[in-house]
């Protein structure tokens, strides 16, 4: 019944200001005019005639998007990691090979940064957890609910500033003429500045500085959900502060720990600018190794792609295994 649709759509568009308050100027909004137009009516009747068709239109674009834009780049990278050359020079056949992966296992120059990155990421994840847990706990349990947002915001603001600016801030903090060395000298603890920069230490400080928030937020939301009555009940039953923490609070915040640790671990394997700026020759991470293959023209890309795949698959596998472990722990808690 096109006629009926037309009049009622026009009614909605033109007169019923109750549905929405935006857009109306002289009694008819832009969308009202469009809805009543012949062209739109034809379009609507052709495409939106049945719920099934409507759903098909709704779902088509998102599916297409996630497959081509979210999954596509990863699949293409996987594909390139198995070819000899990319892009292929004209006149040549595309050859498949495992050489790109073999190259990784053949040289310590590649293997060392790989394991260093994983070890770094794991250690820093743990350090971040230990550092931010008390902060999240304080925010969720000790700060008045009405003030929590302000206390949280105070920590959030600096995290909106990007990787480069915050890395630079750490360079100023730890440099030979940096603030830490100045304070130590002023206190008379050192004569000569300690070379913090371009070491594993400066890199660690930088990465923790960059990723602490990804741990803090999941922890905070897990702890915030935890009813206070649980710890109160434990206290009534005679549990001391430590017992309350180990037996009640910690086990019930495993979910937050799990998602925070996964995020921090995955993200910290992917930093590139920070290791370049804060690290030195002894702290080369795998991101720098991978990047090295992309500074040159296309001929090294397949190797870089293979290395990136190795890194991502390993990091993902570790995260999933960790998540599984936490899940099992959690189920143990529930029982």
């Amino acid at each position: 019944m096109p006629g009926k649709v037309q009049t009622s759509a026009a009614t909605l568009a033109g007169k019923s200001g109750a549905v929405t308050r935006t857009g109306e100027r002289d009694g008819r909004s832009l969308w009202g005019v469009i809805a009543a137009s012949q062209v739109y009516q034809a379009f609507s009747n052709a495409l939106l005639s049945s719920p099934r068709r409507q759903f098909a239109i709704l779902i088509a674009f998102p599916v297409l998007w996630v497959l081509t834009q979210h999954l596509g780049p990863m699949l293409q990278m996987l594909y390139v990691s198995f070819v000899e050359a990319y892009p292929v020079s004209s006149g040549y056949e595309q050859q498949f090979t495992l050489d790109n992966y073999a190259r990784f296992f053949g040289s310590a120059i590649f293997i060392m940064p790989f394991f260093r990155t994983l070890a770094f990421a794991a250690t820093l994840t743990l350090a971040t957890l230990v550092l931010t847990y008390p902060v999240a706990y304080f925010l969720a349990r000790h700060v008045k609910r009405s003030n929590q947002m302000i206390f949280l915001l105070l920590l959030l603001i600096p995290f909106w500033v990007g990787e480069i600016v915050r890395t630079y801030a750490i360079m100023i903090l730890l440099g030979n003429n940096g603030a830490v060395n100045l304070v130590l000298k002023w206190l008379g603890l050192i004569d000569r500045p300690i070379p913090f920069m371009y070491t594993g230490f400066s890199l660690s400080v930088g990465i923790i500085y960059l990723s602490a928030l990804y741990m803090l937020l999941p922890l905070y939301s897990a702890l915030e959900k935890l009813p206070r009555s649980y710890t109160e009940a434990a206290a009534d039953l005679g549990a001391g502060p430590w017992a309350r923490f180990w037996k009640v609070t910690l086990p019930l915040s495993l979910e937050g720990i799990s998602s925070g640790a996964t995020l921090v671990f995955l993200i910290s394997t992917g930093y590139y600018a920070t290791p370049v700026l804060l690290g030195g020759p002894s702290t080369t991470v795998f991101a720098e190794t991978i990047a090295g293959f992309f500074h040159t023209a296309g001929d090294e890309w397949p190797t870089g792609a293979a290395f990136a795949c190795l890194m991502f698959v390993t990091a993902l596998a570790i995260s999933l295994a960790f998540g599984q472990m936490m899940n099992r722990l959690q189920k143990g808690v529930r029982k």
Partner: peptide, 16 residues
Amino acid sequence: LIPGIISAISFRIYAQ
């Protein structure tokens, strides 16, 4: 969830 460097280079390849 994809680490920064991997996201960047996968898009570099994909753009190609």
